[in-house]
């Protein structure tokens, strides 16, 4: 069944795929940076102990985590125009990815912070460091190491999630597969090529993530 796999057509469509790949790259990088910032803000609010910012942060995180990304995408795609906001699909998509991953990242950072031993905080308190100084010099540097592997894991998830933007006709990698399928009726060639590119991105990120994890264990064990 793979005998009549048509490589020629894949090469013919290569510019389309590479364009899609480029979009997927750009969308992912922009989204992950925005999500990181969102996550840091949401996490800070959540652990702040100030009720008027803590509870909205909790609500945001829990809503994002308990509804499907696709529904969030449609919510923005069909919802923003009814509010009079007409923005390009790609920006809607990035907004959805940012909000969705931001919530997961907030939880990753929170877990990192709470993994720092209570005694470390006490030692900081005992030597007279204030809250900001304890965060900056003691807690965050230690939490950072723990959060790197799960953050890379979230980056992997985000790259794959960006495939859903094809459903609101953003011209990214998966969309290029759909385009080729509809033009040439060759879904096998189209989607195996798409899958191949995703796996390449995945393997790069995975290698990086495994390496960071090993690095981390090494540092702890010394």
């Amino acid at each position: 069944m793979l005998a009549d796999f048509n490589f020629r057509i894949i090469f013919e469509y290569m510019p389309l795929f590479l364009n899609g790949l480029k979009s997927t790259f750009l969308i992912s990088i922009i989204s992950i940076i925005l999500a990181l910032m969102t996550g840091i803000v949401a996490c800070s609010c959540r652990i702040s102990g100030i009720k008027i910012i803590k509870y909205p942060a909790i609500a945001y995180i829990e809503i994002m985590r308990s509804t499907p990304l696709l529904v969030q995408i449609y919510f923005l795609y069909f919802g923003l125009p009814t509010l009079g906001l007409r923005i390009p699909e790609i920006q809607t998509g990035i907004l959805a990815l940012m909000l969705n991953s931001g919530a997961y990242i907030a939880e990753i950072i929170r877990a990192g912070i709470s993994s720092v031993d209570e005694g470390q905080i006490e030692a900081g308190v005992a030597s007279g460091l204030n809250y900001v100084q304890r965060m900056r010099f003691i807690i965050l540097p230690q939490a950072l190491g723990v959060t790197v592997p799960p953050l890379l894991g979230q980056a992997i998830v985000l790259v794959k999630d960006s495939a859903l933007l094809s459903l609101i006709s953003v011209a990214e990698l998966t969309r290029s597969g759909q385009t080729m399928t509809s033009e040439r009726l060759m879904p096998a060639e189209a989607f195996f090529t798409v899958a191949f590119f995703y796996i390449c991105i995945y393997l790069c990120l995975k290698t990086f993530s495994d390496w960071s994890q090993k690095k981390l264990i090494y540092r702890e064990a010394y």
Binding site: D117, G119, A123, S127, G128, F137, Q142
Partner: peptide, 28 residues
């Protein structure tokens, strides 16, 4: 101000693992 006048030594040391001895001592 008060804590600056009082040194505290813990049972479990609680040195900051990401800093050298010197950095640990200099932080406060």
């Amino acid at each position: 101000k008060l804590r600056a006048q009082i040194g505290f030594v813990f049972q479990q040391f609680h040195l900051y693992p990401h800093m050298t001895s010197l950095q640990n001592i200099m932080l406060a």
